[in-house]
Amino acid sequence: MTNVRKNHHYVSQSYLKAWGNNHNRVWNYRILVSHNSVPIWSQSSIKSIANHQHLFTRSIVGRDSDEFEIWMDQEIETPAQIALSKVRSNEPLNTHDWECLLRFVALHDIRSPANYINSMNRWNSEMPTVIEEVLQSSVNRLEADENIGSIPTHKNYTDFGIIPMRVSKEIDNNSERGYLKAEVLLGRGLWLFSIRHTLSSTYKVLNKHTWSILLAPEGVEWLTSDNPVVKLNYYNAGSYDFKGGWGNEGTEIIFPLSPSLLLYAKVGERVTLNNISKELSTMLNRFIAENAHRYIFATNPTKETSEIRPRIVNSEDYENEKREWENWHTGQKNLEMEFQELKDARKCDQD
Rank of each mutant, 00 (worst) to 15 (best):
H8D: 07
V11D: 03
S14K: 15
S14I: 02
Y15K: 11
G20V: 03
W27D: 05
Y29K: 08
V33A: 07
V38R: 15
P39N: 05
W41Q: 08
K47A: 14
I49D: 07
A50W: 10
N51Q: 14
H54T: 00
L55G: 02
F56W: 15
R58P: 02
S65K: 06
E67I: 10
M72A: 12
I76K: 08
E77V: 02
P79I: 11
I82W: 09
S89M: 10
S89E: 06
E91V: 00
D97H: 09
E99I: 08
L107Q: 04
H108W: 02
D109N: 14
I110R: 08
R111E: 03
P113T: 07
A114T: 04
Y116M: 10
S119H: 11
S125R: 15
S125F: 13
E132V: 00
V134A: 11
A144I: 00
E146Q: 12
N147D: 15
N147S: 11
I148N: 13
I151G: 00
D159N: 11
K169H: 08
N173L: 13
N173E: 15
S175W: 04
R177I: 01
K181A: 04
L185H: 04
L186Y: 00
R188H: 03
G189Y: 02
W191D: 06
T202K: 10
L206D: 02
L206R: 09
H209P: 00
W211I: 05
L223E: 01
S225I: 01
P228D: 04
P228Q: 08
V230S: 09
K231P: 01
Y235F: 13
G245V: 04
G250I: 05
E252N: 03
I254P: 11
I254M: 06
A265K: 03
R270V: 09
N275L: 05
N275V: 03
N285G: 10
I288T: 08
A292P: 10
I296C: 12
T299N: 13
P301W: 09
E304F: 04
S306N: 12
E316G: 02
D317A: 14
K322R: 15
W328L: 12
H329P: 01
T330A: 12
G331Y: 10
K333L: 12
L335K: 01
E338N: 07
F339G: 02
L342W: 09
K347G: 03
K347Q: 13
C348S: 10
